[in-house]
Design a protein around this nucleic acid. Structure first.
Lengths: 348, 348
DNA sequence: GGTTGGCACTCGGTAGTATCGAGTGCCAGA
DNA sequence: TCTGGCACTCGATACTACCGAGTGCCAACC
């Protein structure tokens, strides 16, 4: 009480307290059982008796790093305990040779369009970590348009296709006005192409009228559907290894809640963005504000294109997850993805 | 034994036996509890005493329609029991007005490309039924190419984009040869366009050489990546409402297994195809050969384009699912999807 | 002969009780 | 300040008793 440090979140901890806290956290992470004083002593790192450890445990509990599920049980870490562990007691870790191999092999062999790569990447990240992984596609908002065209599909149906500088392809189906022939489509495509080339999908350039009514109508239609859905709504979320959630939690209601969150793409996007904006790479328990994820930890890493943060990868596990491993995997995959997706490099 | 009918799977059942079977099945579907003789009598449909019902239950059990979880419990249906129920005791049912409204509202307002529509449709189907839903995109194998182009993204990176007659857009990133300028890309695009227009992605037309080395190299590259992945590998599976699995089963291990199946897109595609090829619209329990889905029932409906079966929708629930409701929802959504996707209609 | 009420029996589920032991908090002594 | 000792707590496990839903069987009845 008289200690002014009490209100600081991350003040230093007695080296011995830190060691004991570490023993509890890593013990609980590997066994999923509350850790008792004798188990800590047996681990060998601390040269004192269990009685001494117990008094330290009481202190750690009072300070909010640990809690007891019930009176006669060992301790388990609180969110604050995990936080201290992540910030001060562990470092990102490195991938094992086999995982390293898996990553390089993946990026050597992956093929297909942007979406396919991201989709597979989410599976890769899940395989590497044994947790559920998410990959949020780079926002296309800032990507510039490299090509636009209107393709007729027959029977008054058409498709507006825009290719973006980041490799993304946006397409929207439209209903064509009656009696549009291929020539009209070609004319409109040509005009759109010159007008929109280089502008971003978030801020489409205005298409000046040509005087040809049919062309202008088509162009208006195309720009309208391209701009109609804000790009945030089209940020895509890829979830890999969702079945592993069932292994990570034993309460089926928790699994349900987390799965339900993962279905809401907007929520996942916001979650990852919020975490990164607060400058963290890990959000533990209730640190992010999402109730149903209170028993989860999220490890995130940004995907960058030309130094600008454009997307993200995330790993979702129980708070008692393997933080070093997850952070290492997220780091490696996000870096590789950034490299692979980044296109406007200077070595051309 | 002496009864020759014994070996026929779906011979008629005594009307009273059928009524009793129906009572058991619908009772178990709505309560999830084994159904006893007295509950059947209380339901009122059968004008006999519980003792009589019991002797019929014994017969139904001997014939394989019912089983007892343990000696002193009521009966629950076997897969065969559900099958009889679906085939003879119930009909597809109709959607409630509210659901009907939901469907029309959905198809009125949905926008975006083909994939977006299918993705949202899986959520719709899940919302309608309260079960997990899957939508398999129409195979692009038979769709003809309406447009091909190679777009440069800078720094030796390019994207091959093909627009198909069914509204699908395939894209593959490629590494461009050194020193390719926009003119070369345009030339190659033009040549590809005329060569491939109308051919299917499953059987690309050969592109005749032009004599221009750069153009021919680009065309070869493009046709190679377009043909490289067989189209079955690119059939896309959209899963909606996976969180509902956690509500449908109480064994967490079952949830895990089913989720794991849903992650394997190829398996889902095969499953739905197998079921439809055997002429069914419902597969119950172990009727399909997929072990982890032994406690599931799958309701499927084809998505057709111009009369040809091209994709499918499916509903995945426990064997004690609401078959009429699920069948109605699958039917409606698949029909609407067929209508919306089908493009080469004749009224153009 | 099919149907029925009666009845003994089975067995999962629930509640109550005893026991075990891991782990604790506390304290006196080193 | 640390340590060994000790009484205490309380979840987990095992065992028992009991209840009741539901059964199979059978003699009697229409």
């Amino acid at each position: 009480m008289s200690d002014a440090h009490e209100h600081r979140g991350s003040e230093e901890l007695d080296p011995r307290k830190a060691a004991i806290l570490e023993a509890v956290v890593s013990g609980y992470i590997s066994t999923a059982q509350p850790v008792g004083s004798s188990a800590i002593v047996k681990a060998g790192e601390i040269g004192v008796s269990s009685a001494t450890v117990r008094s330290e445990l009481v202190a750690l509990e009072r300070e909010g790093y640990l809690m007891q599920p019930h009176t006669s049980a060992g301790r388990i870490p609180t969110d604050k305990g995990y936080r201290f562990f992540v910030d001060h007691l562990t470092s990102p870790g490195i991938l094992g040779p086999q995982q390293r191999q898996e990553v390089t092999s993946f990026f050597d062999h992956v093929q297909g369009g942007l979406e396919d790569v991201l989709e597979s990447a989410s599976s890769l990240l899940s395989d590497l970590t044994s947790y559920t992984a998410v990959v949020v596609s780079p926002s296309h908002e800032a990507a510039s348009i490299r090509s636009v065209q209107i393709v007729g599909l027959g029977a008054r149906r058409g498709l507006v296709v825009a290719v973006l500088s980041d490799g993304g392809v946006e397409n929207r189906s439209i209903e064509l006005p009656e009696s549009v022939d291929d020539a009209a489509l070609a004319a409109a495509t040509a005009h759109l192409q010159t007008s929109l080339m280089g502008s971003t999908i978030g801020a489409l350039a205005t298409v000046s009228p040509t005087g040809n009514a049919a062309t202008d109508e088509l162009c208006a239609l195309a720009t309208q559907v391209l701009g109609s859905t804000t790009s945030i709504e089209h940020e895509h979320v890829f979830v890999g290894g969702s079945s592993r959630l069932a292994g990570a939690f034993d309460a089926i209601e928790t699994v349900r809640g987390v799965l339900s969150i993962l279905e809401q793409q907007l929520v996942v996007v916001s979650l990852l963005r919020d975490v990164m904006e607060s400058g963290l790479s890990v959000a533990i328990g209730s640190e992010h504000g999402y109730e149903p994820l209170a028993s989860c930890a999220v490890v995130v890493a940004p995907v960058e294109i030309n130094g600008r943060q454009a997307g993200a990868v995330g790993i979702l596990g129980p708070t008692r997850m393997d933080y070093p491993g997850a952070m290492a995997a997220a780091e490696v995959v996000s870096t590789e993805l950034s490299e692979r997706i980044g296109t406007e490099a200077s070595d051309g």
